[in-house]
Design a protein around this nucleic acid. Sequence first.
DNA 1: CAGCCATATCTTTTT
DNA 2: GATATGGCTG
Length: 735
Amino acid sequence: MSIYDSLNDMQQKAVYQTEGPLLILAGAGSGKTRVLTHRIAYLMEEKGVNPWNIMAITFTNKAAKEMRERVDQLIGYGSESVWVSTFHSTCVRILRRFIDRLGYDNNFTIYDTDDQKTVMKEVCKRLDVDTKIYKEKNLLGQISKAKNEMISAEEFYANSASDFRQRKVAEVYMEYEKRMRANNALDFDDLLLKTVQLLENDEQVLAYYQDRFLYIMVDEYQDTNTVQFKFVSLLARKNRNLCVVGDDDQSIYKFRGANIRNIWDFEKTYEEAVVIKLEQNYRSTQNILDAANSVIAKNTERKEKRLWTENGKGELIDFHHFDNGYEEAEYVAYDISKKVRKGQRRYKDCAILYRTNAQSRMFEERFIAENIPYKIVGGVNFYGRKEIKDILAYLKTIDNGRDDVAVKRIINVPKRGIGLASLSKVQDYADGRGIGFYDALKEAEEVPGLGRATAKITPFVTMIQKYRSKLGLVSLTDLLDEILEETGYVKELELEDTDEARARIENIDELISKLATYVEQEETPTLGEFLEEVALVADIDSLEEDSDYVVLMTLHSAKGLEFPNVYLAGMEDGLFPSFMTITSDDPMEIEEERRLCYVGITRAMEELHMSSARMRMVRGETQYNKISRFVREIPSDLFQHEIEKEKAKPEEKVGSYQVAKQAFRSKPMVGKQFTVTKAEKLSYVEGDKVNHRMFGIGQVLNITEGGRDYEVTVEFEKVGIKKMFASFAKLEKMS
DNA sequence: CAGCCATATCTTTTT
DNA sequence: GATATGGCTG
């Protein structure tokens, strides 16, 4: 009796296939982590492979941690030497050691999205880029895309000669790179990109890692992008023992550069590859799998798989159509507390999954009212909070004096009376001398025109220098305490005496204990390493098994998780699938959305609920959405109740109630609203066909005269009924 | 220079 | 509806 006997035939085959390229197509819930962990165990125990010659790469820290724990349980020795980590931390480890060969300093800092934005703002200012036309976020998106495709700033520039806009973006890209380098900082994309550059340009380093990682395993392969693909290929080129695990039906990160072709073309890239399909599902009931299968079957391009299970049929799917989002939240809250009260479920058995983070708010409000413990994953990341970023910026400044973004963030926090004018003088001085911002601060008295501000800057510099000299002498926790004490950061919040300030203090306390935990864990804790760890955590990593709360998160965050009882909320056309994908010309977009739905359904083990709302507030405007097409793709005999047919004439639904409510609401504002531009007369009337630049063609159902503007209700062919202000909507009448 | 108020934009998803 | 940004004033 060996540990491998508990695996099914296909799983065993995957475990025993240790040599050469291997593609494991693992359907949802088919035990792929089991296979990977057993495979690692098998390599060590039966094949005598040294643990440090094995590498397993995942996307999240949570997955990495889980894998390591399970290998530990399986073999109980040597597992700590197996290299199990995420793409990003793997790269950081490599770069910390060798990035000096690319001309960077080895103690580079990692910039998150916020920091990138700050840099981008400066870039735009410097290059005189009109951020009304070229949005910072958009520019960063283009740069990120280029980096994911391994296009350097220089190449981008060379390719942009013909297009004015592209040329502008190229200039921004170059300046952005220049600043990142000056700050000795890398963004998330750089971590991968620089590592690949290093491996490509430095034979020594490449050979070192190729000989180190003799067996490579990659989890969630369907979500790898071009750089990640390149990274893995380079490492595996010599020994070719590359095992990738994934499910093309769960590829949901295209927007982040993931290339589903990587998994589709694996057999072309590695001609000798062995392919193994895992289709037996151990997670869900047959009904849930049937629903998932029928939805995903609508996709045209995919590797055929059909999940089956030995579990019973189980319960039917529960679908509800509510009038609005409040009722939806109310029902879910009620249903969960009922089940907990009856002892059928614990809170942690239940998860609410939605398309957009914004949807979490209503559930949150309801759960607070009903006293249901909950945890929201995603949204504003803990490390994205203002107070946390401020304090981390202090630590970063102390750790790496070249991190201008960090210095600028805190130089006037708490208020020291150092304003923008002074800062730009310092910046000019720094630019003129070709030195960093912080170094310029050190020479404040040399900076022309600073005047009185010098006296405010000097104490700040002295303080930072003091802490810097203390590094390594006092413990990190003491250092942080001193900083908080000396700057008066917490004291200021205490004086504020608001709920918000108290929440911020709590967050700071949590950061303190995180630092303390880190210091305890590590043999030789360093500030730099702590900052790095912090930079690479995702929110999902914080999910704890042992606490009992309902989990709320986006469908994206839910990938890889499972819950006995799942609620898929907001199943509406326009929300899920989103307008963007409905109106897109590219049919692949809706397919990606459908895969997301497939991911959602397959999270459920025993019970699956779905719900839609007829009316929903989205960014301050009311939308009337139809039931999601995905719901209708599920055979009706899988539902507990019959789902209403689509209304032929949806006009009734808008009805008099809506008009009356609208008139009522706009009345008190009438007086002053007349000053606002209001079209004298609209070019269309009820019943006309109109065109909207986003939503396409539709028919005008209703026009209401509000105080400020006409409110027009239109039923669009693609996205359903929308209510909009005439002056914003810019509807064009069609003949 | 800091605090207040008006406006604009957001909503797809995140390592 | 909520938040980030920009402009204005004290």
